[in-house]
Design a protein around this nucleic acid. Structure first.
Lengths: 267, 267
DNA sequence: CAGTGGTCTAGACCACTGG
DNA sequence: CAGTGGTCTAGACCACTGC
């Protein structure tokens, strides 16, 4: 699996060399060893040393590589696991999380059928209405941390369940990272769209923020979703981020909530 | 538990560590020591040994009490902290979480002003329209795990921000636990409603589930929220639970989302 | 069986809080 | 200063997976 392990530039992590930095930069920043280790593991994941779905080295190996105890590596991995960046499997190893896994499939889609059984509904049927390169509007540029006018890929599609159109959504993706994304690709790919992004473009979405509103369907939207004009719909605006908190997708969804609901758990 | 080793008094931690309590025993399943400790701490919180806002014993004290190492207690508390049941403060101690704290105030209210600054908005102004004892409908009974016809307290109120009515909500609470709840109490109390529930009725909400939909305002709702009839509103149905996963509140909110939005973070 | 993650211990030291 | 939570280590053993 992992190739060479010599590549550990800051493996000075050895003897608690945490603190003493040149006082020049006003950063008294003390960060615990395990946080530094976490950062190094994260960095290796970003750089593709271990790809989504692959196993990372065992705790023992990582402890040796970073010259720390297994417990310290463990705490670093604990945090990565808590953030869903990594999945632990007892007796097997620790794996880089991926959207291409059955049980983690719809991690970002909180819409559930009122019956509560999403599995019984089968996979969503996708209809791609549009997939084109355009220039970013000011708004899209702001959301994606681009400049207005930069190239973006815009996708419009409908998701249906049991043949009933339920979600109408528009996606905007940075043009450079998603060069070559086509309607055929988005239609034909079997599995979650985010898995396609991982596999074809090497972009893994790690977290997302959503702003939810109730809106009335305009005539075009109503026609596409097969509801009456002005019907109340759930508007879900999502910004999804990759590893560095870099925004990589803006998505605006309109959800029908006559047969489904958005489910959220608070704690 | 399996170890028979002298250094691993796991059984004594589970049963013998019950110190003064009756030790509900009947601990059937096998679970790690730290999970058992977590359960015991939880139990003490439920029983009111330490009340919301108070400090629980130090890790060392708990370790002695349960006859386990500090590390094991630490892992138990780590989980409780991750579930927001407890708050750690370095150098001071570990405290039972409470809704009566400034920075944890609106833990269950995800509606944000579009400006993003909820603090700048000031506290919500509450108008209680109704607070009465009624008999549970089948639906309310199901949500609260009661029997249809059982007594419940029903509250209807409006929350306004900067004088603008923004949320219309109905609450249903089990009649036995909330005997004596009055409109004056709900109006006059300074602080989150959940803090009032904690202090006056000893009921602490620990987690909640929400089902969100887009709906159109009927004429009565429209009048109360000062919007046009059929305006799209966010319908938020919440069931809040106490310690034992016992449902203690059903709440149906209608949120205006023309100036606010429901903010959610996915990971 | 060997190798992985998971639990538990014991002890050391660090960082923060308050009197 | 003493007491708290926070970090780190080293070593032991347990539970699970696969060969």
């Amino acid at each position: 699996m992992s190739t060479a392990m010599a590549q550990t530039p800051s493996s000075s992590a050895a003897s608690g060399a945490a603190t003493s930095e040149p006082a020049a930069s006003a950063t008294p920043a003390f960060s615990p060893l395990y946080q530094q280790i976490k950062g190094l593991i994260l960095q290796s994941m970003q750089e593709g040393e271990w790809k989504p779905g692959e196993a990372i080295p065992s705790e023992m190996e990582l402890a040796a590589r970073f010259r720390v105890s297994q417990g310290t590596v463990r705490k670093a991995i604990d945090e990565l696991a808590a953030e869903n960046l990594v999945v632990r499997r007892q007796g097997k190893g620790t794996y880089v999380a991926t959207h291409a896994e059955q049980h983690l499939q719809y991690r970002f889609l909180k819409l559930m059928p009122d019956s509560g059984d999403r599995a019984g509904e089968g996979p969503a049927e996708r209809t791609v209405l549009e997939c084109k390169r355009v220039r970013a509007t000011a708004e899209v540029a702001r959301a994606l941390a681009l400049r207005a006018g930069d190239a973006v890929v815009q996708v419009r599609r409908i998701l249906s369940f049991r043949g009933v159109p339920t979600i109408l959504e528009d996606l905007w993706l940075p043009g450079t990272a998603f060069k070559g994304l086509s309607a055929e690709q988005m239609t034909g790919y079997v599995g979650p769209t985010y898995a396609l992004f991982e596999i074809e473009f090497g972009v893994r979405m790690v977290r997302a923020e959503e702003k939810i509103r109730a809106v009335g369907a305009d005539s075009a939207q109503a026609a596409l979703l097969n509801v009456a004009q002005a019907s109340p719909l759930l508007s879900v605006e999502r910004i999804a981020y990759t590893y560095n908190d870099a925004p990589m997708e803006l998505r605006r969804g309109l959800y029908r909530t006559d047969t489904h609901h958005y489910r959220n758990e608070l704690s």
